[in-house]
Write a protein that binds this DNA or RNA. Sequence first.
DNA 1: ATCCAGGTCCGAA
DNA 2: TTCGGACATGGA
Length: 349
Amino acid sequence: MTSARENIPRRAQHRLAHRAEPDILLGGERLRIIDPLMVRGAQNIGIAEKNAHLWALPTLSVPAGEFDLVRTLESGQCFRWWRWARDAYWGIVGSSVLVIRQSRNDLRVSVCGGAPPADIATFINRYFDLSRDYRAILRHLRRDEVFARLAPRRAGLHILRQDPFEVIISFIISANNHIPRIRSIIERICRVYGAPIDTPFGRAYSFPSPESLAEARLSDLRVKCGLGYRDVYVKRTARAIADHLALAEWATWPTPVLRRRLLQLDGVGEKVADCILLFGFHRLEAFPIDTWIRRAMKELYFADRSPSLGQIRALAIERFGPYAGVAQQYLFATYRTTDERNGKRSPSE
DNA sequence: ATCCAGGTCCGAA
DNA sequence: TTCGGACATGGA
């Protein structure tokens, strides 16, 4: 049996041993997975060493326009990116491990592990949706005065094009969970069911395939991965997709049809379906209504009276139309960061 | 230690 | 259709 620590650099192991932040992992190892490569918080240990590796990687430059890397990666639509030192992020996309930094209007991209995409520039362009005119979208949204009052002038927050299956499973896990824990659970299922990807910084894991999750033991999902009662949702949905569902074909369906189909998946309700539409199928009109958005819309448009889901959705379509999902991301970002500044009011009030 | 989280499901009115 | 309660777990 291989120890989970084997793949972690020695100095990180030392740091790990002194963290005293327990989590459950394989084979009795205890490790809290916040950052699989342990590069976050690198101010203590090994930063010079890591940076030396980092700087040695070949780097590709991609024009970024008004795109804002940090705003986009911190917007809650993805779960597998981590901040690296100050200005860089590393993340796992498909079977590649990427490091990305932004300086003004260009992105510097390094592949530090896994199978690099055939054409990295095209890949990055697509993943970050760099060709779309988000300035124009924001201008369109700002025609609503209420939205214009709180939205930033600068665009920059893009909707990523992520893998549909990864998004489906990730947002099933998101239900009745908070973001740090969602990330932690996702890392554990990747570690148990994903494919290893070696990098100069340690070993990362890809997101598991539908087949491997379909064959998971429920008790492993529940206990090792910490899924709780969502174990059956994940397993059944993975099983359905592995057996007879062609997500590539779903991508060609009209949004209302696709939405109805998503709602039939185990663990997928209205909110999660809309997240999948927006983040997994790039349907920019989808408007996921979570506790934050509900509160934002209530304050902004309903004078603090409690509107029904239907009322909120109708208003979102009316005000934001085909770009409701982009508006949703700005509302989410604004309200969540406001809340952090104000020190955690309960979102339900 | 205690609360509660990017909700969903299920059964009852 | 709408409403309310249960629900596993662990992060803060």
